[in-house]
Write a protein that binds this DNA or RNA. Structure first.
Length: 347
DNA sequence: CAAAGCAAACTCTAAGAAAG
DNA sequence: CTTTCTTAGAGTTTGCTTTG
């Protein structure tokens, strides 16, 4: 018989968390049935991803952020922002599990967004970073910290009376457009921003248990399994290119406890967030093809050989001469991957 | 010890797209 | 032309930790 407490926590567990437990119990011996997860899903994932070693589910507590990250808060970094990217550890792999179709990579408030932005900028060497980046940063700094509105946010927006709320809303529109443009036009920036949101190396440090080394994606049924090391630039590029940037409010109803009963006051607290949403993460894997999961170099060479064989004579040479970027674009890699020393260009 | 603060899961909705 | 399906976008709830 399960204790009441166990019953409660199981009920309260999200589907993603349940799948974490399916996987971990599967690899540790006997898979335990989880709510909303069919028994066997964990085992299927373990097998398909070829996982080995002992598994554990990583809890929330006890992770510290780097000083680079801390700088973006005026005082203490709130512990609620310190959720690790790693969901489960199996053997030496620190795995972030992305289950189901839609995945939210981040949904950070002002300081979290600023921290992510800065870490991305610092890791971007692209030259075309004009004043747009300054504008974005300024806009991020204008994001709203939590405030209290008279009623529900949407209704207050319609009324238009709350000046602070209206100003913040205009800023959201502006910032969202700038970020979307930048994601579309500056591949390096998009890459670094999305990577940090997924992996957390700047936030927690490379060696921290809270930053992940692998992304594991699967359906809740245990199908469509992909285990990708975060060193796979082609994969992160794919995600960065398909991610949707959303700048918006989050809100929560204010509650007061009157004589032991929680009652809504009618007011709502709201704050700005920057979200990164990947809609069809599994399909992205399929589209990206097998060079994601297999030896990347081998497949690049194969790809080049096929390509060269077909097109060398009439198209390639002039095209190649035009700009090195064409090669990079074709391969779907980010520019700082060095590969041309090792490849025999002849078919 | 209530309230603030926060992320993430969960849920609803408006509006366009597709089907009948 | 009407109904149904899909989905982008947004609000709500949950479950913590920290603060005053």
């Amino acid at each position: 018989m399960k204790s009441f407490k166990t019953f409660i926590t199981e009920g309260g567990r999200s589907r993603g968390e349940s799948l974490e437990h399916s996987i971990v119990t599967a690899i540790n011996g006997k898979e335990e049935k989880q709510k909303k997860i069919s028994l066997g899903a964990g085992k299927k994932i373990v097998k398909a991803a070829k996982l080995s070693g002992t598994g554990e589910v990583v809890g929330d507590g006890g992770f510290e952020v780097t000083s680079e990250w801390k700088d973006n808060w005026p005082g203490k970094v709130p512990s609620s922002t310190k959720t690790p990217k790693t969901d489960i550890i199996i053997g030496k792999k620190r795995i972030s599990l992305k289950a189901g179709g839609k995945v939210q990579l981040m949904s950070g408030g002002k300081n979290e967004s600023e921290a992510t932005f800065r870490s991305a900028i610092q890791r971007t060497t692209s030259l075309d970073m004009g004043d747009i980046m300054e504008k974005i940063e300024k806009s991020i700094l204008e994001l709203s910290p939590a405030k209290l509105a008279a009623g529900q946010i949407e209704a207050e927006k319609k009324k238009g009376k709350d000046k602070v709320l209206m100003k913040a809303t205009r800023n959201h529109t502006k910032l969202q457009k700038m970020l979307r443009d930048e994601f579309a036009n500056n591949e390096q920036f998009a890459f670094q921003f999305a990577k940090e949101a997924m992996v957390g190396q700047a936030k927690f440090g490379k060696k921290s248990l809270a930053s992940c080394t692998h992304i594991l994606s699967a359906s809740f049924e245990g199908d469509d399994v992909h285990l990708i090391p975060i060193t796979n630039k082609a994969y992160i590029t794919k995600i960065a290119n398909s991610v949707r940037v959303v700048v918006r409010f989050k809100s929560a109803s204010q509650k007061k406890t009157i004589k032991g009963v929680k009652t809504k006051t009618g007011k709502y607290r709201y704050w700005s967030v920057v979200s990164l949403i990947a809609d069809k993460i599994v399909e992205e894997f399929e589209l990206a093809g097998d060079y994601l999961t297999e030896g990347i170099i081998t497949n690049i060479i194969k790809k080049i050989k096929d390509w060269v064989a077909n097109l060398w004579t009439n198209k390639i040479l002039p095209w190649l001469k035009e700009t090195a970027n064409n090669i990079i674009g074709f391969l779907g890699l980010t520019p700082d991957v060095k590969f041309n020393n090792e490849i025999n260009w002849k078919p």
